[in-house]
């Protein structure tokens, strides 16, 4: 069942169209990664889903209702990003207690456990926290609220590597204990590979791929071999990335639309076939088609 359904959604800010005719469905009780580069439209999409903004065109449905200004959606959804604002006069401890008052599923045990583990001082105020601690605290609020729809927008900003690993693990454990729909936006796909079930790849305000993580791993392959050997097998549109190597060798990343026979034939010709890392693939799919940073210099 689709918990979040976006149908042909567009959202512009003045002249900049942040998302364009975007359609996608987030399934119930799955962890979906929303992956894209800076400015791809991740935050805009998430804020529209969270009901902060109304789309200019198209329809967004969350729990089958329009999320904008909707009390039911607000009660069953939490959107954690680095812009979370709490009352400046409440200590962290008091903020957690407020969370308990508002969210009926609130899990104080988890909140306090994580609080101790990450060594947060309950008497501090929210604006006294460092960037990493702030993200850690927001993450705790997001997990403890245990909302049927939990959105994390770039939750790991400022966290160091080990805190990030702990966060992923905490998220996964809590998700297994209390399954819910989680949308996680990030540009660090390599770190998320193990916890994501689905992936939505977004680029320039459009969805460029929506697959399960398993399908993504088979979505493309890397072929390395002599140019004249490779050429007969390749359809030009399927090339995602091309790199010239020495000795007239070429390394291509192409969509995996080959039959078993074709793979066999390629292997016989001495063409090397490898899997493509999900993080690399997402980079190739969302990358600019022409050249790289080297061309600037």
């Amino acid at each position: 069942m689709g918990i979040v359904i976006c149908d042909n959604v567009s959202k512009s800010f003045k002249k900049n169209r942040a998302i364009k005719n975007l359609s996608c469905t987030f399934q119930e009780n799955r962890i979906t990664g929303l992956i894209g580069r800076n400015g791809a439209g991740k935050t805009t999409l998430l804020k529209t889903i969270a009901g902060r903004w109304r789309p200019n065109e198209g329809v967004v449905k969350v729990f089958d209702e329009d999320p904008y200004d909707n009390l039911k959606v607000s009660a069953n959804m939490i959107c954690v990003n680095d812009e979370l604002v709490f009352s400046p006069e409440l200590t962290l401890d008091e903020i957690l207690k407020s969370g308990e008052m508002f969210y009926s599923n609130w899990d104080m045990e988890i909140a306090e456990g994580l609080f101790d583990y990450f060594e947060l001082n309950p008497n501090l105020y929210h604006d006294q926290l460092s960037k990493g601690k702030l993200s850690t605290f927001n993450m705790i609020v997001g997990l403890a609220s245990r909302c049927p729809l939990t959105i994390f927008d770039e939750p790991t900003t400022g966290m160091d590597y080990s805190v990030r690993q702990d966060f992923y693990r905490a998220l996964l454990k809590d998700y297994i204990n209390h399954p819910r729909t989680i949308i996680l936006s990030s540009h660090l796909l390599n770190e998320l590979e193990d916890i994501l079930e689905d992936i939505v790849l977004i680029d320039k305000g459009e969805i460029c791929l929506h697959e399960s993580m398993n399908d993504l791993k088979e979505y493309a392959i890397r072929i390395t071999g002599k140019r004249e050997d490779i050429e007969p097998f390749i359809v030009e549109e399927n090339i995602l990335h091309k790199k010239k190597l020495e000795f007239n060798l070429e390394s291509l990343v192409v969509k995996n639309e080959f039959s078993k026979e074709e793979i066999e034939q390629m292997k016989q010709r001495g063409i090397q076939i490898l899997n493509v890392d999900a993080a690399d693939l997402s980079m190739f799919l969302t990358g600019q088609s022409k050249g790289g940073i080297d061309d600037v210099f």
Binding site: K72, A75, N76, S98, M101, N105, P148
Partner: peptide
């Protein structure tokens, strides 16, 4: 997972208490 359907009055009450405490 079951959804909560909060009443307007309970949401107002909680926000009112949050304001009293937080400001």
């Amino acid at each position: 997972m079951s959804f909560n359907q909060p009443s307007v009055s309970s949401a107002v009450k909680n926000q009112y208490l949050y304001k009293l405490k937080g400001y």
